[in-house]
Amino acid sequence: MKSKLAAVELFNRLTGGFEPATLFHGVDQSNLDNFEQRWRPELKRRRDEFGSWTDAAKGNAQDSHWAWVEKAANQASYEAFAIEGGGETQGLMLIDVTTHFARIEHQKGLELAFIELLATAPWNRRHFVNQPKYAGVGTLLLRAAVTLSMELEFKGRVGLHSLPQADSWYDRLDITNLGHDVSESMNYYEMSEAQASAFLKD
């Protein structure tokens, strides 16, 4: 079930001003259609410009193979979030709240909100288009993940695997980098309870 969570704002890099948008808990067919018809062709086109998956990082198109539709259709396993603005889906996130557990030593084994997928629309991405449009999508989705974790009494604990080109963002947010996860060939990041409180703080 898709429900409106909050009125939010995205920063339009092209105009330098904030624009109204909406954060939804849950996604519906319009988001999936938007992904299939607007996101996926752009991701595939950009992906095809590079010879290998590793090289595709340069074009910020490594998630062209993400099976969004199939995953989102199985919503019993995931908490889904979407940000809509300017008549389109600007960001999507899927969170698994049942099968992942904390790895940081002092909270090891405790439940957490695991971000299975977090993505902005192709036209909002640096290195994907010359002039990305909206900023704030990642920040707001991450806040939604932490808020969900609080709501579920996970005290803000959040885990995720970062795409390599996004490592610096998670590093700068002061989320603990637990290093390379051999099983996924990506770096694993985890937000502790204290880091979550600091992230939410005004």
């Binding site: 993400w66 993505a119 902005t120 640096r126 996004a166 998670y170 996924e184």
Partner: peptide, 18 residues
């Protein structure tokens, strides 16, 4: 937080390596 996001990439999640 925008100051940080403006020059960053934010994507996270499992990859499917072709």
């Amino acid at each position: 937080h925008l100051v940080v996001e403006l020059d960053s990439t934010v994507e996270a999640g499992k990859k499917l390596e072709p």
